[in-house]
Design a protein around this nucleic acid. Structure first.
Lengths: 241, 241
DNA sequence: CGACGCCTTGAACGATGTCAACGTGCGTGG
DNA sequence: CCACGCACGTTGACATCGTTCAAGGCGTCG
């Protein structure tokens, strides 16, 4: 069946939502067409450049968003400026902490990011009315918890070499979720400094480890951001698995 | 009103649950007396010694528990034996990962632990019937996520001295949740080796940093496990705040 | 008393951080 | 178009922190 034709038939789905990944994999997957419509009346899309602060570390939360495209980094900072990135979010993740006034992390666009934003009150009302939506949030939160704990192992117990390999692997798997192949190439969504802040290292150490992996033929770096991995299993070995 | 008398009036609350902290602060707080009764028919209490494995890293989950007393450590291990503790759980935390077949972490009793265990099927059915219970789980999961991300900052960016101070502070605040005083004393719930695995350090480094804090008069260590903190704010300074 | 588990202490080593110089790509303004 | 400055990344030399390896202390239990 022609896709356009099908979209015409279910035309009560808001136009904006029709092409949106969140409608299937994200939290919006829990909503009916009617509910999507209701929500979409209060939502608006934004495209923001890299570096934009989306949520401050101790600002009140008055809106939530779905990530439509791009990468968002969640980070914490110490008084003296030391910084740690505590998570990356990709489409179609839900951005924001339901039922929390403060969230304790700041969210910043790592790449150019497209988000779909709704006011806090609307979401919280809908959660109250729809157990399924809350279930969806619990699922995502559990996933984030798993990822956080995996990363704790990386931060606490892996060497610099293993950390950098782990990072490349993380990006590779997010760039190609269902990948079966052994060779991939992708763009790094962030700078060397950001990678360092994610891995608990310095920029210099990250750079040296990348150079080492390049020297060993495990990766190729064409531009600063573009990485090719001819054999993922060799990279995986370096990550400590 | 006399407490015993009050308990008598709501005597449809199962006897085991009456004195249980989970009934108020934990997930059971979401349940009515009837539901508690229903759940308690399928639950049983266990007291296990330190070191008991409660959940294996890749074992299927067939039961859930509430922690009644004691401390449970959640950890991950690499193939070569390197280990990282990724979280500590205290009463009245809920132990187990709803809707996950595997959980990716192993849970082990750090101290002597009392738990109240229910079969998976019962819990999952009750969650389906009671949105409030799922909400309770979401709240706890969000709390665990916050703690995990805080600890990521500790693992990635703090010095050994700051890590050890942070750990002592964590235990102190859990031992005295609503504490306003500036002086506390408590028992460490785990060995130097465990502390090292929690902080991403070696046992030796932990020991040296404790000795240093003792030398500076910030803590006193009477037995190996017993710690006194005369002035919490001084300890807090050392934790990097 | 001796053996054992747990912890502390010391000395040497090594991985990662620090500091500084240099390279590279890119946009801007002459 | 070139020269320049700037942001970002790489590389080198050296310093430092935390690990490693080894010895010894301390309390507990046989």
């Amino acid at each position: 069946m022609d896709i356009k034709r099908k979209d015409f038939i279910i035309s009560d789905t808001p136009a904006l939502c029709q092409a949106c990944e969140s409608r299937h994999r994200g939290v919006c997957g829990a909503l009916s067409s009617d509910q999507l419509l209701q929500l979409s009346r209060h939502s608006h899309r934004r495209v923001v450049p890299p570096g934009t602060e989306l949520v401050g570390e101790s600002t009140r939360i008055n809106s939530y968003s779905n990530i439509i495209s791009g990468v968002v980094k969640l980070s914490k900072m110490m008084a003296d400026g030391r910084q740690q990135i505590v998570g990356l979010q990709f489409a179609p993740d839900f951005l924001g902490r339901p039922f929390r006034k403060e969230n304790g992390v700041s969210a910043e666009a790592a790449t150019e990011v497209t988000i779909c934003t709704f006011p806090r009150t609307v979401i919280e009302r809908m959660i109250g009315e729809m157990p399924e939506l809350e279930h969806q949030l619990l699922e995502q939160t559990l996933n984030e918890l798993d990822e956080a704990r995996n990363w704790m192992l990386t931060l606490g117990r892996k060497t610099a070499a293993e950390k950098v390999a782990s990072f490349l692997l993380l990006i590779a798997t997010h760039a190609f979720p269902e990948n079966e192949r052994d060779s991939v190439e992708f763009e790094l969504p962030m700078s060397r400094m950001d990678i360092a802040d994610f891995l608990g290292l310095t920029m210099e150490t990250v750079s040296r480890q990348l150079t080492k992996l390049r020297g060993e033929g495990i990766i190729r770096i064409t531009s600063n951001r573009h990485v090719e991995v001819p054999d993922i299993s060799r990279l995986s070995d370096r990550a400590g698995f």
